[in-house]
């Protein structure tokens, strides 16, 4: 009986350790899922229309993408954003970037964003719970966060994202 009890305890520990091994510690799940989008203030990027909190009140599904021109993975996801921009409104938040570099970037790779804003001090990124780049939020018609994609959106992620947005 004693050994049976010990076996049960040890196997539960074993099971938990095994489950723990499969968790990717670099991905911190968003604490804002099903919550309303936070308030934020951004700076204008040259001639592009400025993105602000009020834009998210529109009764439609939209995407908010955090990026920077100095971020390598952001370049990898850019074609996927271009593809998504044909079906959804995408708003861009550039983190700690240079407005001239953003203009150059968008002219070279195309502009998937409806509106853009610059978060120079990182405060708006904290407000959204962003800790790395790129990060993408899917927002429903009622201004609630449906899903957060951490890291670059790859071609095989498009199906998952489209399923969320339907």
């Amino acid at each position: 009986m004693k050994y049976f009890f010990l076996l049960i305890i040890m196997s539960s520990f074993g099971f938990m350790f095994y489950k723990g091994l499969k968790i990717d510690p670099s991905i911190v799940p968003s604490n804002l899922i099903d919550e309303e989008t936070p308030n934020f203030q951004l700076k204008k990027v040259e001639n592009y229309p400025l993105f602000d909190s009020k834009d998210l009140l529109k009764k439609e599904i939209k995407i908010v993408n955090f990026f920077a021109t100095w971020c390598g993975p952001c370049k990898i996801e850019h074609p996927q954003l271009m593809e998504l921009s044909s079906s959804f409104r995408i708003y861009g938040i550039a983190k700690k970037d240079n407005p001239q570099n953003i203009t150059k970037w968008l002219k070279s790779y195309g502009n998937p964003f409806d509106k853009i804003g610059l978060d120079n001090d990182g405060i708006s990124s904290i407000e959204w719970g962003v800790y790395g780049l790129p990060e993408t939020f899917l927002i429903n018609k009622d201004n609630k966060i449906l899903y957060k994609h951490i890291g670059p959106i790859m071609k095989n992620d498009l199906e998952k994202i489209n399923a969320f947005l339907k």
């Binding site: 510690p25 670099s26 911190v28 700690k96 001090d121 990182g122 405060i123 990124s125 904290i126 800790y131 790395g132």
Partner: peptide
């Protein structure tokens, strides 16, 4: 610190740790 796992923000050089310290 969110990107360096078991370091606190006071002891981390990561960008997000610096932003959080300032905040």
């Amino acid at each position: 610190c969110l990107v360096c796992q078991n370091e606190d923000i006071e002891n981390s050089n990561a960008d997000i740790a610096r932003d959080l310290r300032i905040l």
